[in-house]
Design a protein around this nucleic acid. Sequence first.
RNA 1: GGCCCGUUCGUCUAAGGGCUAGGACACCACCCUUUCACGGUGGUGAUACGGGUUCGAAUCCCGUACGGGCUACCA
Length: 506
Amino acid sequence: MNKKVRVRFAPSPTGGLHLGGVRTVLYNYLFAKKHGGDFIVRIEDTDQSRYVPGAEEYIFDCLRWCGLEPDESVQHGGNFGPYRQSERKESYRQFAEQLVDKGFAYYAFDTPEELDKMRQDFKTEHNPSPQYDHSIRMKMRNSLTLTNEETKKLLENGTKHVIRIKMPEKETVSFTDMIRGEVNFDTSTVDDKVLLKADGMPTYHLAVVVDDYLMQISHAFRGEEWLPSAPVHILLWKYLFGIENMPQWAHFPLILGPNGKLSKRDGAKYGFPVFAMNWSDPKSGELTEGFKEKGFLPEAFINLLALLGWNDGTEQEIFSKEELTEKFSMERVHSAGAKFDYEKAKWFNHEWIKRLKVESLRLKVGELLAQNGIHVTNEGLLDKIIFLVKDRCTLLTDFVQQSSFFFKAPDVLDVNAVKPKWNEAKQLFFAEIIRNYELTTDWDAHVLENNFKEIAAVNDLKPGELMLPFRIMLVGGKFGPGVFDIAAILGKEETIRRIHYAMGKF
RNA sequence: GGCCCGUUCGUCUAAGGGCUAGGACACCACCCUUUCACGGUGGUGAUACGGGUUCGAAUCCCGUACGGGCUACCA
């Protein structure tokens, strides 16, 4: 009988949610949903010094925006709580002590200064960063080197101490990664990781294993940066809960920036966002722009992240969340890291804007215009405009430039585009256009275009030379949909008013 | 330094021993378009290197190089 699929995403509330983080959530979510399982979000907040207020709420905001809502979490409830590790503090100590009793771990009383000294003393050219491992541990102050009485006394006196795992000296541990296949480690090269810190909090190593067990996690997926600590976790499973109960693992490749590692910091440096949504650091007050605010659709954001390290083997590139859920498979996730390409990311967004129906864009475009001081009350009009301009919008924010002029006469006209070729004949032509349009009763794009061209022909002028000035008059610059479509939407009065105003400027 | 992971056009990738290594982004050219786009057609461009195994290797094996990650009482 198969265990129910239960996967978890375990962010630490220390800052914004970056690309790699969102992709990890996504793959976890897709895997869970594909197999009819649960998607759990657990907060890894055991390092209180790095806890950033607001980060937790921010993470859930991002998940909500992406449409990746958990089945269980701090915010969503569930039967395996608490979902915040700091609130589970008490349960970890007993497991750590259980390990000490069985001889798989030990108490260590070394002070930070002593650890520093050890790292200095044992540092050599061939070993620049000595580890607290089998070759060193017998030279340190811990329950392996002290007598039982000494240890007992120190503990009774409340001496600051940690619990470290005692890595076997010569053992090969291996597991089968769902993406990479069999991976082997030699325990002699792994150090005696701290499991329980001096403040009583567990480290990630202990917490992840205990919580995955208690929360009945069936599959555990995380970034490749965790691969080196896998042997510690494997041993903990073996010692504590039985290796046969260990979840199936997969380690995702890293998402790289233009120059290697994609760092959370200085997102502005790359010229593109690295966070899902705007993140303002409460300590520094620094604001880092997010994909949402940059003008990305969640549909596109998810789509582009999914394809960064996975594909279904066909040439399809545009997938809805439903399609991804149906087609996703861990076996088709790559093992190599992927460099993030912002140009391609924008292409995904453009494709989604083109594909999405006007109704799906209406709300977002309306909000965006409102933020720019344009409050649209006529929904039918907004729909018409969105339909007309959406093909030329790569980011949602492009809608502002592409549609503002429908509601507000341009503040500045690109007169330089017109002035050099402006002359008396053109002046007279537009004067006649005004008279003609004033008498037009059927205010329709085709009618306006026909009249425009007829008058041009009568005056022996090329329509092409007149359409650019006309565009500048209505729009202000060299952009936007067809001029006559614009005039049709603007209406008679406004169109004539803008021609009139602009003629005085050329 | 040690350990682990990786390596196909500039970028994301397809091809799991067998046709001229396919697609997408970007770039270039042309068509469409009297703006900018959309769209259409075509083009430039890759199996890191060296050895094996094989009739045959991008694909399997070994080595080298290069890249990345880890090497905290951070996750």
